[in-house]
Write a protein that binds this DNA or RNA. Sequence first.
DNA 1: GATGAATGAGCATTCATTCAT
DNA 2: CATGAATGAATGCTCATTCAT
Lengths: 218, 218, 218, 218
Amino acid sequence: MPTIEPRKLPRQQRSKATVQAILDACAEGLQSRGYHGLTTHAIAMRAGASVGTLYQYFPNRDAVAGALVVRSMERLLETMRGALAECVERGLAGQAATEHLLLSALHVLVEERPVFSRLGAEAPHLFRLPAAVAAASQLIHMSQEIRLTSGNQLDLPMPEADAWIIGHMVSASMMQISLLEGPEEERRKLTREVARLTCRMALSRVSESSASVAAAAA
Amino acid sequence: MPTIEPRKLPRQQRSKATVQAILDACAEGLQSRGYHGLTTHAIAMRAGASVGTLYQYFPNRDAVAGALVVRSMERLLETMRGALAECVERGLAGQAATEHLLLSALHVLVEERPVFSRLGAEAPHLFRLPAAVAAASQLIHMSQEIRLTSGNQLDLPMPEADAWIIGHMVSASMMQISLLEGPEEERRKLTREVARLTCRMALSRVSESSASVAAAAA
Amino acid sequence: MPTIEPRKLPRQQRSKATVQAILDACAEGLQSRGYHGLTTHAIAMRAGASVGTLYQYFPNRDAVAGALVVRSMERLLETMRGALAECVERGLAGQAATEHLLLSALHVLVEERPVFSRLGAEAPHLFRLPAAVAAASQLIHMSQEIRLTSGNQLDLPMPEADAWIIGHMVSASMMQISLLEGPEEERRKLTREVARLTCRMALSRVSESSASVAAAAA
Amino acid sequence: MPTIEPRKLPRQQRSKATVQAILDACAEGLQSRGYHGLTTHAIAMRAGASVGTLYQYFPNRDAVAGALVVRSMERLLETMRGALAECVERGLAGQAATEHLLLSALHVLVEERPVFSRLGAEAPHLFRLPAAVAAASQLIHMSQEIRLTSGNQLDLPMPEADAWIIGHMVSASMMQISLLEGPEEERRKLTREVARLTCRMALSRVSESSASVAAAAA
DNA sequence: GATGAATGAGCATTCATTCAT
DNA sequence: CATGAATGAATGCTCATTCAT
């Protein structure tokens, strides 16, 4: 079980830039060749450095990708914090809030596309790194806070299952949408739809009695 | 771009068995070591053959995995066809039909878990093979046929987007559910929830006018 | 702790030859470049094979050297067994027997020079492999048997220490002698001297009483 | 063949301390990781310096180890000179002198253990550096001087061979003893035995005629 | 003088693929 | 048809050495 902890911290200005360049290069390489097809030489070269330099800051390839995951998760977290603050500030709620939050998330997902889609699929273990898990759990805390804040009605008969399903449905949709290559406008539209449908799913329970009648009729 | 077409068709009975054994071995190996960690030697050995034999039927490793994908897709297609026939036969509709269809799909997804989850993530290009695409498009045809058959009211303002989103949401959920390791009952329950929520999403548009008022108010 | 066990047994005639060629090449390479300077590529090439072939039979570099050590130890054991039998057969004893045994050992030491000197110094852990240890302990058994057979008088006041010292002195001398590059006659002469001195050391205790007086006086 | 000569002489006080610290660090590292496992970075760090500093005084890694060897050889030489003086001063001779000399040598061997055992095995070429050879030959001169001084009777039929063999036997024994990890008392005891046996070997020639009779009888 | 960032040749090892038997 | 021996390009990683600051 090889460690993945950063090998040494860059002290000088020059080396800090190098480390960031390596992470950027890793993300770019991920996009075009996937994680398995991505060599440490390729990463270093794209970062304008040599392999040796890469290995001075990271003990192995996984450590590079792991650091990238953490950086992306933290960016997502930071963004969501900001978005939540804006919701509160602007008094957004319900579908409007959902939409704002989803669009904010989408923005990061798009920017960090290779990290979330490629690494999520090819190296899911990197998302179980302590730092990544920490960021994820803070995100979850946030989403609970959102519910309380917006005082919504999500107390359902089978709440965990629903939450689990809806959560996965939404995140899967967002992931798929983030993969669209077209113009941003397209993604924005789809995100709005997801927000709308999500709210429907969540709220549908309220009118359970009447709805079930319609469903049975269908 | 090396070809992936099967090298030669097994004519004799024995050869057919060998090819099937290789595909089975590939699926098993996929489960335990992933596609990247799966070597042609390992596949051949597990199939009780030698590498040479494997290469007599497949031009390269991707061809083996590709053939496996196609086999799994066809199994899924076959199953869904059967399930649809049963819906018609038993006069199922609406949520009941959705549920039956999803449960049928789930059965295959679970059985072919390594193919859909491992290969879907590590080698998505294999799902773009003509034969796999063909099976997939037939599945989509079927789902349209289902709508018609069940005479549902899915003609929405932005129908493709909705269908796209709902389709992805559902398939993502099903994929996740298929990965659950617990007792089947658990998977069955979650699938029912997905079916219910799916129907809600689909039907929600009907009451669009009134709902949009509420949404706007929120 | 990487394993060192042979990876697969050569079944066909061709591969058996390959494995022997690899061991021979390893020994030769050891001679000229030492263990640290010896690369697997160099071994394979010198053996007329490719790296891949080497790794088909040995899991890593240490395994190659380890197998070589075992082969050499077994050759030494085999030779010593034969030499002992000859001593008995020809009724040799005392210095004559010692000389014959040492000369026999020397012959193997010279032939397997790189193994015993280079590996003994640079990779002593290889001599702690089970198979090597087994051969070594059989050698020790033999040397005890020799004492009994020749009925010599080595029951000394501090026998283990003496045996330990004399053993090391002798083996060190033999090792050094085996490294001499000159004509064999030279080595033979020196070996005779070692035999003579060894017997002196061993026998000196006999006249202990008188000697110790002198020693105490010094 | 890269030079090994020290790059520049440390003139200032501070520099001298740095160089000594580097040699000490090298010796310590040798002890724990062997020469092959010892990196220039590790040496520098343990010496509280940076690689750059190390390379300011030594042109390459071998030069560091070489300087260490020379320092140790000189320490050995110095010690032996002192011990010899003491023998003369105290009027020691025969086994008593031998014992004193061996114990003095042992003391240095133990203190410089990593140099003599690790480097002796892994990098014997360092002992062929001019400065190291010079120290060694002075040691040999000394041992001849000892013979003369102690007026012993070592003018044998094949004197070089005997000296060579006995010398190697003794030094090999001392090397082994120096490696013992136990209490010093143990080492002292064994050294005494070596001294005794050595004297026996050396003196045995005297009683050649009578001894050979006994040997033939055995 | 001292520092540590950067370099890149070099090594062990893997594995898809070929082909003689 | 089947076998498994042989191949070698490719990859992750190390570490002695250089040099700008």
